[in-house]
Computed example of a mutant assay.
Amino acid sequence: MAQVSLRNLRKQYGATTAVADVSFDIAEGELVAFLGPSGCGKTTTLRMVAGFVEPSDGEIWIGNTEVTRLAPDKRNTGMVFQRYALFPHMTVAQNVAFGLEMRRVPKAERATRIREALDMVRLTSLAERYPRQLSGGQQQRVAIARALAIRPDVFLLDEPLSNLDAKLRVEVREEIRALQQRLGLTTIFVTHDQEEALAMADRVAVMHDGRVQQIGSADELYERPANPFVASFLGRMNFLAGHVDNGQFVTANGEKITINGAASHANTLGIRPERLRLAAAPEHSEVSIPVRLADRVYLGATVELRLTSERGQSLVALVPNTAHAGAGGWSQGDTLHACFRTEDCLLFSA
């Protein structure tokens, strides 16, 4: 396995900047997820690492070798595509063998590698079937086996779970993560699904408008987001606009919240919905905002409560669906108090 280094990587399509000045290192054996909305530059960045897109500027290093201008087959990267890209006229074994044949691996060694790769994804018994005879999850495993058969230095996955149903997505992502850790594969995983990124990655690079907004572990990004975009893309966030005055954050609607060490230029306060606690009376040990219950949405394990403050501020609270949560006893139109700790508040500047 090898370290991957991206240095001032940039991709321009005419007047449009798809990727702008992306720089960071991926350690040997690390799984890094590129996370962001459609059009943010994550897949373009991945395809530049794979060699399918030529950078407009910058450098790509795999180990001690600069591969920026090398052809894809000279980089020893294994790629799993969003739509699997299996050959329908080839059997499972033939699909897995394809990359080995292109690299002119001797026949005896090819057979060994095919068997090893199919063993890793538990598809040995299906080696002679065709893609049309497989389920979506099985086809995905074939694509993974094909990428692993060449024994890549870097494992690349482009939204590999997006075509699977919800239950199967969870199963396959756990299998990919376990396989990646067992083999020590240096891996880049592209996704727009925050749960996938948080569950699978050692670190997550959140991208927006062609730039990496923040890179860090799941808890770093969730607990200490660098800006409102990261805060809202990783989980949900209540945002209150306002300003800081003598250590207090004064919302645009007039609520005052004391924040120790608040920077004077902060103009947005964030609080996670699950950090809001609802009570019938104000809690003097916490910040308390009078609210009215506007609506409630049943989500199974949680209940989403949509609130409106006395001054017109919209808030959302997430409460666990348990007997003692109290959510079942509140009705639309009830007057409550949204309580939270100041240490759970996040302040952002424009």
Rank of each mutant, 00 (worst) to 15 (best):
Q138I: 08
I176Y: 07
E54M: 03
V244L: 08
I176C: 05
A262H: 03
Y84Q: 11
R182G: 02
P290W: 05
G235H: 01
I176L: 13
W61H: 14
T187Y: 00
L278E: 04
R122Y: 00
F24N: 10
I289L: 14
A71G: 03
S349M: 11
H243M: 09
N260M: 08
V67M: 07
K11E: 04
L278N: 06
K167A: 14
A145H: 06
R146A: 12
R103C: 08
Q12P: 01
R275M: 08
E174H: 12
A111I: 00
L164T: 09
G63Q: 04
N227A: 04
G210T: 00
L100M: 11
A205C: 08
I257G: 06
D119A: 14
R141L: 03
I26V: 15
A301L: 13
I62T: 06
E196H: 01
A279R: 15
D295F: 07
A15T: 14
P228Q: 09
E304W: 00
F249H: 04
Q94V: 02
A350Q: 15
A178N: 12
V32N: 01
V204D: 00
A18Q: 09
L134M: 13
L183Y: 09
N267W: 11
T191E: 01
A317K: 06
A18T: 08
R224M: 05
R311S: 14
L346M: 14
R169L: 10
E343P: 00
T187I: 06
L6F: 05
L164K: 02
L307Y: 05
L221K: 00
L168C: 10
T112W: 03
L70I: 07
L347Q: 06
A20K: 00
E223Y: 06
V154R: 04
I271R: 02
V96Q: 04
G300H: 08
F87I: 06
N64D: 15
A350G: 15
R203H: 12
G312T: 07
E310Q: 13
I176K: 01
N253I: 07
R275N: 12
N267M: 10
F233C: 05
V287C: 07
H265A: 14
E195M: 05
E54I: 02
A15Q: 14
E116A: 14
I289S: 00
A149C: 14
D21Y: 04
L134P: 10
L315G: 00
L318K: 07
V172I: 15
P72T: 11
V250H: 10
P131H: 12
A281M: 13
W61R: 09
A197E: 03
P131C: 11
G235K: 01
P225C: 05
T43V: 13
H243S: 15
T44P: 06
S125W: 13
G242T: 07
T44Q: 05
A20S: 09
Q82M: 10
E59A: 13
T45D: 02
Y298S: 08
F34D: 01
L126I: 03
R173D: 04
V67K: 03
A166R: 02
E59Q: 15
F87C: 01
L46Y: 07
A231C: 05
A205P: 05
H284L: 15
A323S: 13
A338R: 03
A149H: 10
A338P: 02
V291P: 02
F155P: 06
A294L: 12
R151N: 13
M90A: 04
R169K: 13
T342M: 05
A93C: 04
A147K: 11
H89C: 11
V303H: 09
A143F: 11
